[in-house]
Nucleic acid binder design. Sequence first.
DNA 1: CTAACTGCAAACAGTTTGCAGAGTG
DNA 2: CACTCTGCAAACTGTTTGCAGTTAG
Lengths: 136, 136
Amino acid sequence: MDVRNSVQRNRILELLQQERIHVSAHWVFDQLRGEFPRLSLGNVYRNLHILVDQKLVHRLPLGGTRDVYEAARDDHHHFICDRCGAIIDLPGSDELSRSARELVGQSGGSVSQLSLEIRGICSSCLTGEHRSEPVR
Amino acid sequence: MDVRNSVQRNRILELLQQERIHVSAHWVFDQLRGEFPRLSLGNVYRNLHILVDQKLVHRLPLGGTRDVYEAARDDHHHFICDRCGAIIDLPGSDELSRSARELVGQSGGSVSQLSLEIRGICSSCLTGEHRSEPVR
DNA sequence: CTAACTGCAAACAGTTTGCAGAGTG
DNA sequence: CACTCTGCAAACTGTTTGCAGTTAG
Protein backbone atom coordinates (compact mmCIF):
# COMPACT_ATOMS: atom_id res chain seq x y z
CA MET A 1 0.00 0.00 0.00
CA ASP A 2 2.02 2.85 -1.34
CA VAL A 3 1.46 6.45 -0.49
CA ARG A 4 1.09 8.92 -3.32
CA ASN A 5 1.30 12.65 -3.36
CA SER A 6 -1.79 14.56 -2.33
CA VAL A 7 -2.22 18.29 -2.42
CA GLN A 8 -4.59 18.17 0.51
CA ARG A 9 -2.36 16.04 2.67
CA ASN A 10 0.57 18.37 1.97
CA ARG A 11 -1.51 21.33 3.07
CA ILE A 12 -2.62 19.56 6.24
CA LEU A 13 0.98 18.91 7.17
CA GLU A 14 1.94 22.50 6.36
CA LEU A 15 -0.87 23.79 8.54
CA LEU A 16 0.25 21.69 11.47
CA GLN A 17 3.84 22.75 11.02
CA GLN A 18 3.19 26.44 10.60
CA GLU A 19 -0.09 27.76 11.83
CA ARG A 20 -0.70 26.31 15.25
CA ILE A 21 0.67 23.59 17.38
CA HIS A 22 -2.12 21.50 18.80
CA VAL A 23 -5.24 21.15 16.74
CA SER A 24 -8.23 18.91 16.21
CA ALA A 25 -9.25 17.27 12.96
CA HIS A 26 -12.22 19.58 12.83
CA TRP A 27 -10.06 22.67 13.14
CA VAL A 28 -7.96 21.49 10.19
CA PHE A 29 -11.16 20.89 8.27
CA ASP A 30 -12.43 24.40 8.96
CA GLN A 31 -9.13 25.98 7.97
CA LEU A 32 -9.01 24.24 4.62
CA ARG A 33 -12.63 24.57 3.60
CA GLY A 34 -12.00 27.87 1.87
CA GLU A 35 -9.13 26.39 -0.08
CA PHE A 36 -10.86 23.11 -0.92
CA PRO A 37 -14.60 23.77 -0.97
CA ARG A 38 -15.41 20.07 -1.42
CA LEU A 39 -13.10 18.88 1.34
CA SER A 40 -14.60 16.21 3.57
CA LEU A 41 -13.94 15.62 7.23
CA GLY A 42 -13.46 11.92 6.57
CA ASN A 43 -10.59 12.71 4.27
CA VAL A 44 -8.95 14.92 6.87
CA TYR A 45 -9.06 11.99 9.28
CA ARG A 46 -7.65 9.61 6.68
CA ASN A 47 -4.79 11.94 5.89
CA LEU A 48 -4.04 12.59 9.53
CA HIS A 49 -3.78 8.82 10.04
CA ILE A 50 -1.37 8.54 7.13
CA LEU A 51 0.75 11.37 8.50
CA VAL A 52 0.77 9.69 11.89
CA ASP A 53 1.89 6.43 10.26
CA GLN A 54 4.68 8.35 8.56
CA LYS A 55 5.60 9.76 11.94
CA LEU A 56 5.29 13.30 10.62
CA VAL A 57 2.44 14.00 13.00
CA HIS A 58 1.71 12.92 16.56
CA ARG A 59 -1.74 12.14 17.83
CA LEU A 60 -1.91 13.26 21.41
CA PRO A 61 -4.08 11.13 23.65
CA LEU A 62 -4.89 13.96 25.97
CA GLY A 63 -8.46 13.05 26.70
CA GLY A 64 -11.21 15.53 26.19
CA THR A 65 -13.79 15.13 23.51
CA ARG A 66 -11.63 15.56 20.46
CA ASP A 67 -8.35 14.02 19.46
CA VAL A 68 -5.49 16.46 19.21
CA TYR A 69 -2.72 16.40 16.63
CA GLU A 70 0.61 18.18 16.38
CA ALA A 71 3.45 18.13 13.87
CA ALA A 72 6.27 15.87 15.03
CA ARG A 73 9.22 17.73 16.50
CA ASP A 74 11.87 17.70 19.20
CA ASP A 75 11.35 16.06 22.53
CA HIS A 76 9.02 18.08 24.64
CA HIS A 77 6.35 17.63 27.22
CA HIS A 78 2.83 18.97 27.59
CA PHE A 79 1.31 21.01 30.35
CA ILE A 80 -2.46 20.74 30.18
CA CYS A 81 -4.70 23.10 32.08
CA ASP A 82 -7.49 21.15 33.76
CA ARG A 83 -9.70 24.20 33.75
CA CYS A 84 -9.45 25.84 30.31
CA GLY A 85 -7.95 22.91 28.41
CA ALA A 86 -5.00 24.88 27.11
CA ILE A 87 -2.09 22.73 25.99
CA ILE A 88 1.23 24.39 26.66
CA ASP A 89 4.50 22.98 25.35
CA LEU A 90 7.35 22.50 27.75
CA PRO A 91 10.91 21.90 26.59
CA GLY A 92 12.50 18.51 27.22
CA SER A 93 14.15 18.24 30.60
CA ASP A 94 16.84 15.72 31.43
CA GLU A 95 16.16 16.04 35.10
CA LEU A 96 12.47 15.43 34.72
CA SER A 97 13.04 12.52 32.36
CA ARG A 98 15.49 10.94 34.75
CA SER A 99 13.12 11.27 37.71
CA ALA A 100 10.28 9.76 35.72
CA ARG A 101 12.32 6.84 34.47
CA GLU A 102 13.56 6.16 37.96
CA LEU A 103 10.04 6.17 39.38
CA VAL A 104 8.81 3.78 36.72
CA GLY A 105 11.83 1.57 37.28
CA GLN A 106 11.07 1.30 40.98
CA SER A 107 7.69 -0.14 40.11
CA GLY A 108 9.28 -2.88 38.05
CA GLY A 109 8.48 -1.30 34.71
CA SER A 110 10.83 -0.09 32.07
CA VAL A 111 10.33 2.79 29.73
CA SER A 112 11.16 3.66 26.18
CA GLN A 113 9.81 6.69 24.33
CA LEU A 114 9.09 8.59 27.49
CA SER A 115 6.61 11.40 27.12
CA LEU A 116 5.06 13.39 29.93
CA GLU A 117 1.79 15.12 30.45
CA ILE A 118 1.67 17.46 33.36
CA ARG A 119 -1.78 18.56 34.45
CA GLY A 120 -2.64 21.46 36.64
CA ILE A 121 -4.20 24.88 36.49
CA CYS A 122 -2.45 27.36 34.25
CA SER A 123 -1.42 30.81 35.42
CA SER A 124 -4.08 32.56 33.32
CA CYS A 125 -6.79 30.52 34.98
CA LEU A 126 -5.35 31.11 38.42
CA THR A 127 -5.47 34.86 37.95
CA GLY A 128 -8.92 34.66 36.42
CA GLU A 129 -7.93 36.21 33.14
CA HIS A 130 -7.77 33.12 31.01
CA ARG A 131 -9.11 33.12 27.45
CA SER A 132 -12.77 32.30 27.20
CA GLU A 133 -12.43 29.07 25.26
CA PRO A 134 -10.10 26.10 25.39
CA VAL A 135 -7.60 25.95 22.57
CA ARG A 136 -8.90 23.24 20.35
CA MET B 1 -30.35 19.54 43.99
CA ASP B 2 -29.82 17.12 46.83
CA VAL B 3 -28.31 13.71 46.51
CA ARG B 4 -30.16 10.77 47.96
CA ASN B 5 -29.05 7.30 48.77
CA SER B 6 -28.91 4.84 45.90
CA VAL B 7 -28.10 1.16 46.16
CA GLN B 8 -26.65 1.17 42.69
CA ARG B 9 -24.44 4.19 43.25
CA ASN B 10 -23.13 2.66 46.45
CA ARG B 11 -22.22 -0.51 44.60
CA ILE B 12 -20.50 1.43 41.84
CA LEU B 13 -18.32 3.19 44.38
CA GLU B 14 -17.59 -0.09 46.15
CA LEU B 15 -16.58 -1.67 42.88
CA LEU B 16 -14.18 1.13 42.09
CA GLN B 17 -12.70 1.03 45.55
CA GLN B 18 -12.31 -2.71 45.81
CA GLU B 19 -12.31 -4.64 42.59
CA ARG B 20 -10.06 -2.86 40.17
CA ILE B 21 -8.39 0.47 39.90
CA HIS B 22 -8.97 1.95 36.48
CA VAL B 23 -12.19 1.07 34.74
CA SER B 24 -14.56 2.28 32.08
CA ALA B 25 -18.26 2.97 32.52
CA HIS B 26 -18.99 -0.04 30.37
CA TRP B 27 -16.91 -2.32 32.58
CA VAL B 28 -18.87 -1.16 35.61
CA PHE B 29 -22.07 -1.80 33.70
CA ASP B 30 -21.02 -5.35 32.82
CA GLN B 31 -19.99 -6.11 36.39
CA LEU B 32 -23.32 -5.03 37.85
CA ARG B 33 -25.66 -6.51 35.27
CA GLY B 34 -25.91 -9.78 37.17
CA GLU B 35 -26.77 -7.93 40.36
CA PHE B 36 -29.17 -5.45 38.74
CA PRO B 37 -30.63 -7.12 35.66
CA ARG B 38 -32.40 -3.94 34.57
CA LEU B 39 -29.39 -1.69 35.04
CA SER B 40 -28.88 0.84 32.28
CA LEU B 41 -25.64 2.24 30.98
CA GLY B 42 -27.05 5.74 31.15
CA ASN B 43 -27.56 5.37 34.85
CA VAL B 44 -24.00 4.20 35.35
CA TYR B 45 -22.82 7.36 33.63
CA ARG B 46 -25.11 9.54 35.73
CA ASN B 47 -23.89 7.99 38.94
CA LEU B 48 -20.27 8.23 37.92
CA HIS B 49 -20.79 11.94 37.32
CA ILE B 50 -22.33 12.35 40.75
CA LEU B 51 -19.43 10.49 42.36
CA VAL B 52 -16.99 12.68 40.46
CA ASP B 53 -18.83 15.78 41.72
CA GLN B 54 -18.55 14.42 45.23
CA LYS B 55 -14.83 13.94 44.61
CA LEU B 56 -15.10 10.28 45.54
CA VAL B 57 -14.10 9.25 42.04
CA HIS B 58 -11.65 10.69 39.53
CA ARG B 59 -12.27 10.71 35.82
CA LEU B 60 -8.94 10.23 34.13
CA PRO B 61 -8.51 12.10 30.86
CA LEU B 62 -6.14 9.53 29.44
CA GLY B 63 -7.35 9.58 25.88
CA GLY B 64 -8.30 6.40 24.14
CA THR B 65 -11.84 5.63 23.15
CA ARG B 66 -13.37 5.23 26.57
CA ASP B 67 -13.23 7.43 29.62
CA VAL B 68 -11.51 5.86 32.59
CA TYR B 69 -12.52 6.22 36.21
CA GLU B 70 -10.79 5.39 39.49
CA ALA B 71 -11.73 5.78 43.13
CA ALA B 72 -10.17 8.89 44.64
CA ARG B 73 -7.08 8.17 46.73
CA ASP B 74 -3.62 9.38 47.68
CA ASP B 75 -1.42 11.34 45.35
CA HIS B 76 -0.06 9.17 42.64
CA HIS B 77 0.88 9.29 39.01
CA HIS B 78 0.02 7.13 36.03
CA PHE B 79 2.25 5.23 33.71
CA ILE B 80 0.40 4.44 30.51
CA CYS B 81 1.65 1.91 28.02
CA ASP B 82 1.33 3.28 24.51
CA ARG B 83 1.20 -0.23 23.10
CA CYS B 84 -1.18 -2.26 25.27
CA GLY B 85 -2.94 0.61 27.01
CA ALA B 86 -2.21 -0.67 30.50
CA ILE B 87 -2.49 1.98 33.19
CA ILE B 88 0.00 1.40 35.97
CA ASP B 89 -0.07 3.40 39.19
CA LEU B 90 3.10 5.02 40.39
CA PRO B 91 3.51 6.38 43.91
CA GLY B 92 3.82 10.12 44.41
CA SER B 93 7.37 11.36 44.13
CA ASP B 94 8.58 14.60 45.64
CA GLU B 95 11.53 14.72 43.31
CA LEU B 96 9.40 14.26 40.22
CA SER B 97 6.85 16.81 41.40
CA ARG B 98 9.57 19.34 42.09
CA SER B 99 11.15 18.87 38.65
CA ALA B 100 7.80 19.22 36.95
CA ARG B 101 6.84 22.35 38.86
CA GLU B 102 10.19 23.88 38.08
CA LEU B 103 9.86 23.16 34.38
CA VAL B 104 6.39 24.67 34.25
CA GLY B 105 7.60 27.68 36.19
CA GLN B 106 10.37 28.31 33.67
CA SER B 107 7.75 28.63 30.98
CA GLY B 108 5.94 31.32 32.91
CA GLY B 109 3.17 29.06 34.12
CA SER B 110 2.26 28.11 37.62
CA VAL B 111 0.83 24.87 38.80
CA SER B 112 -1.61 23.70 41.38
CA GLN B 113 -2.99 20.18 41.64
CA LEU B 114 -0.08 18.66 39.79
CA SER B 115 -0.75 15.28 38.30
CA LEU B 116 1.49 13.42 35.92
CA GLU B 117 0.95 10.98 33.14
CA ILE B 118 4.02 9.19 31.97
CA ARG B 119 3.74 7.40 28.65
CA GLY B 120 6.02 4.78 27.28
CA ILE B 121 6.15 1.10 26.55
CA CYS B 122 5.70 -1.15 29.55
CA SER B 123 8.09 -3.96 30.38
CA SER B 124 5.59 -6.67 29.43
CA CYS B 125 5.23 -5.22 25.97
CA LEU B 126 8.98 -4.84 25.59
CA THR B 127 9.56 -8.52 26.32
CA GLY B 128 6.68 -9.50 24.11
CA GLU B 129 4.72 -11.26 26.82
CA HIS B 130 2.11 -8.64 27.51
CA ARG B 131 -1.48 -9.57 28.15
CA SER B 132 -3.56 -9.87 25.02
CA GLU B 133 -5.95 -7.02 25.72
CA PRO B 134 -5.61 -3.54 27.11
CA VAL B 135 -6.94 -3.14 30.63
CA ARG B 136 -10.10 -1.17 30.14
C1' DC C 1 -3.26 1.31 -16.44
C1' DT C 2 -3.10 0.45 -11.55
C1' DA C 3 -3.81 1.66 -7.28
C1' DA C 4 -4.12 5.59 -4.17
C1' DC C 5 -6.92 9.57 -3.20
C1' DT C 6 -11.39 11.92 -2.82
C1' DG C 7 -16.38 13.40 -1.55
C1' DC C 8 -20.35 11.68 0.10
C1' DA C 9 -23.17 9.48 3.17
C1' DA C 10 -23.98 5.88 6.17
C1' DA C 11 -22.30 3.34 10.09
C1' DC C 12 -20.17 3.22 14.50
C1' DA C 13 -18.78 3.87 19.57
C1' DG C 14 -19.11 6.31 23.60
C1' DT C 15 -21.73 9.56 26.08
C1' DT C 16 -25.64 12.45 27.23
C1' DT C 17 -30.51 13.52 27.83
C1' DG C 18 -35.92 13.58 27.91
C1' DC C 19 -39.51 11.02 29.64
C1' DA C 20 -42.62 8.50 32.70
C1' DG C 21 -42.62 5.52 36.49
C1' DA C 22 -40.36 3.65 40.98
C1' DG C 23 -37.98 4.68 45.24
C1' DT C 24 -36.03 7.67 49.13
C1' DG C 25 -36.45 10.66 53.06
C1' DC D 1 -45.70 14.24 49.39
C1' DA D 2 -41.60 16.33 46.98
C1' DC D 3 -38.08 15.37 44.58
C1' DT D 4 -34.33 12.04 43.35
C1' DC D 5 -33.20 7.93 41.02
C1' DT D 6 -34.15 4.61 37.43
C1' DG D 7 -34.82 2.10 32.78
C1' DC D 8 -35.62 2.95 28.29
C1' DA D 9 -34.82 4.80 24.02
C1' DA D 10 -33.57 8.48 21.28
C1' DA D 11 -30.25 12.08 20.34
C1' DC D 12 -25.54 13.74 19.98
C1' DT D 13 -20.47 14.03 19.07
C1' DG D 14 -16.40 12.50 17.22
C1' DT D 15 -14.45 9.02 14.30
C1' DT D 16 -14.38 5.35 10.87
C1' DT D 17 -15.70 3.02 6.63
C1' DG D 18 -17.97 1.46 1.99
C1' DC D 19 -18.72 3.09 -2.45
C1' DA D 20 -18.06 5.05 -7.00
C1' DG D 21 -15.67 8.42 -9.35
C1' DT D 22 -11.04 11.15 -9.83
C1' DT D 23 -6.14 11.59 -9.94
C1' DA D 24 -1.05 10.47 -9.47
C1' DG D 25 2.88 7.89 -11.14
